[in-house]
């Protein structure tokens, strides 16, 4: 930790890796009921707090009590968050269906006529098709898609908007 305080990234990385097992074991002992993913989240929360508070470590004092104080604090915070969330959530066996009309449940069932959609996509201009493929099918962000295509974010937004409008129009006429 002393090396980490001096800015040695490699020593810091080794330290954090060594801490993972210790913190994970502590979390598991206290919150045995948590899913592995939740335990990992909590471990990362502790590591992040260690990172934030690294200036508070006094190199002349033992390290583990310092670490455990942070770990206990973050675990208590996490338990409070869990209780707060649980107090506002009502478990439900079945999610209620708010609308029964077919249009509103389209996303759950998948699009009905995949062939018509593929044909409509093929008829789109190259720019609009590419924008929709990257952002709607591959779920890229605007920034990522802009980097991939070499166009501006604004141009992409326009292409997606026009492409969706064209698809909507084409699919309406094929119904």
């Amino acid at each position: 930790m002393r090396a980490a305080q001096a800015g040695d990234g490699r020593a810091y990385s080794e330290l954090l890796r060594a801490l993972v097992a210790i913190v994970k074991e502590t979390v598991r002992r206290r919150f045995g009921f948590l899913q592995p993913q939740d335990i990992d989240d909590l471990v990362q929360d502790v590591l992040l707090s260690v990172h934030t508070a690294r200036a508070t470590y006094d190199p002349t004092r033992p390290f583990l009590p310092w670490l455990m104080a942070i770990a206990r604090n973050r675990m208590a915070d996490s338990a409070r968050r869990y209780v707060r969330r649980a107090a506002h959530e009502v478990p439900s066996e079945q999610a209620p269906e708010t609308f029964s009309a077919e249009d509103t449940n389209m996303s759950a069932k998948g699009y009905g006529d995949a062939e018509a959609l593929a044909q409509a996509m093929a008829k789109l201009p190259q720019g609009q098709r590419q924008a929709i493929e990257l952002m709607k099918l591959r779920e890229m962000s605007l920034k990522e898609a802009a980097t991939a295509t070499g166009t501006s974010v604004g141009a992409l937004k326009v292409s997606v908007h026009r492409g969706i409008a064209a698809l909507r129009k084409a699919l309406r006429t094929t119904k």
Partner: peptide
């Protein structure tokens, strides 16, 4: 975390 490490004074 390690990549962005800045030196800190205790």
């Amino acid at each position: 975390l390690a990549a962005d490490l800045q030196p800190v004074r205790p």
